[in-house]
Simulated scan of single mutants.
Amino acid sequence: MPDPMSRRTALAGLGALGAALLAGCSGGSPGPAGGTLLPASDSGTGTAASDPPSPTPSPTPDVTVTTVTGPVTVPGGATRVVTLDTAELDSAMTLGITPVGAAKAPLDAGLPDYWPASRLAQVAVVGDIGAAPDAARIAATRPQLILSNQTRDGGHDGTLRALAPTVLTPTTGYPWKDGFQLHAAALDRREQAAAVTGAYARHIDQATRAINGAGAGGKRISIVRFVEGEAPTIRLYGRQSFIGTVLADLGLGRPDSQNADRPDTGITPDQLAQADGDYLFHATYGDPVRSGAAAVLASTAWQGLGAVRAHRAFPVDDQLWFQGIGYTGANLLVAELQRALGA
């Protein structure tokens, strides 16, 4: 699997592509640290007497988006955004907006580290994903828009709307492409979103051809996750998950136990044979001991899996593979999969 340096290199390349796409769509230039796209401006210190006075910029019209909870009106061109789940964070960052605040996964020390530290340093952590919102911490960021989903914050809608216009997608994970389009509409960045999705489609096409050319097309890919608090249960991920959609985009196969229209299913260590595949990728959320990962990975049953014996079982970054729900996360996943499959 890619080492940290190769991921930083890949992210830098994707970031450069994203910046070019966003600048090309906006007709402006990359903005300040918050990622705002601003029109190009004169760098002089004054205006010549013969020059007409600069017109006062017209305010950006408000944007109204349709959500499952009804229409929500958002200030046009909102840049002071708070994201309360990882898909929302990926959408905003991919579209060039560094949120002023974001919620982190409860068992993680910080926000997903597939993003550059220089950008994450600008984001105030306002609480944990799925927890009751910390209204004081969110209000301190002076948000213009809050992005989340009903799965995490459906019961907190009233609290959030009192702080700023709040746009909720129905859920997270599997319908992440639909969620991205709603986020782009709320952020008034539909044109940039079209560039992002077009670039992803081209990346998928290139990677699929490379994987097929390496003879790995159609290989059965097993996705395994150990989660603190769920041991001895082990999660196997199905087609209706973020990682499941990326594998489907690449035309890769799944083991029978995961080739189903569901987000995931739980097995116990005595059912570990169901986790086997031609390639196996596994991650741990939380503590390796309390999640059961340490014991399972040291077990005879794990060592007997075909993918393990063939040296095709790879530990992967949980924050990217399971929390990196969005186009930047997906592009990085495609790059890691392509390398692991020898393409």
Rank of each mutant, 00 (worst) to 15 (best):
60 T>P: 02
222 S>V: 11
209 R>K: 13
206 Q>M: 11
196 V>P: 01
205 D>F: 00
257 S>H: 05
9 T>C: 10
6 S>I: 14
118 S>R: 12
320 L>Y: 09
188 D>H: 12
201 A>D: 15
97 I>L: 09
18 G>A: 10
198 G>Q: 10
214 A>E: 09
23 A>Q: 14
316 V>M: 04
110 G>R: 07
214 A>V: 08
321 W>L: 01
179 G>H: 09
16 A>I: 02
77 G>W: 01
157 D>H: 09
321 W>V: 01
320 L>P: 07
306 G>L: 12
161 R>P: 00
158 G>M: 05
128 D>P: 02
122 Q>E: 12
227 V>W: 11
337 L>C: 06
202 R>E: 15
48 A>K: 02
129 I>R: 12
125 V>D: 03
268 T>E: 00
29 S>M: 07
229 G>Y: 01
55 P>I: 00
127 G>H: 02
237 Y>G: 06
133 P>N: 06
339 R>A: 15
19 A>V: 08
219 K>S: 15
163 L>A: 05
138 I>N: 13
223 I>D: 04
50 S>F: 14
157 D>N: 08
78 A>C: 04
270 D>L: 09
12 A>N: 14
318 D>A: 13
131 A>Q: 10
192 Q>N: 11
290 R>V: 09
9 T>H: 14
68 V>T: 15
220 R>G: 02
73 T>G: 07
300 T>L: 13
331 N>R: 15
112 P>D: 05
267 I>N: 06
121 A>C: 09
343 A>D: 03
277 G>Y: 03
145 L>D: 13
216 A>F: 12
98 T>A: 07
119 R>L: 15
290 R>W: 09
127 G>C: 02
97 I>M: 05
268 T>D: 00
102 A>P: 01
283 A>L: 04
205 D>V: 00
114 Y>V: 07
185 A>C: 05
333 L>N: 14
38 L>M: 14
115 W>T: 08
267 I>Q: 04
282 H>W: 15
228 E>H: 07
19 A>L: 14
188 D>W: 08
35 G>L: 09
183 H>V: 13
118 S>G: 10
328 T>V: 14
326 G>W: 00
285 Y>F: 11
343 A>Y: 11
56 T>A: 03
250 L>E: 00
144 Q>T: 00
106 P>I: 01
291 S>V: 02
152 R>W: 15
239 R>F: 12
213 G>A: 04
325 I>E: 15
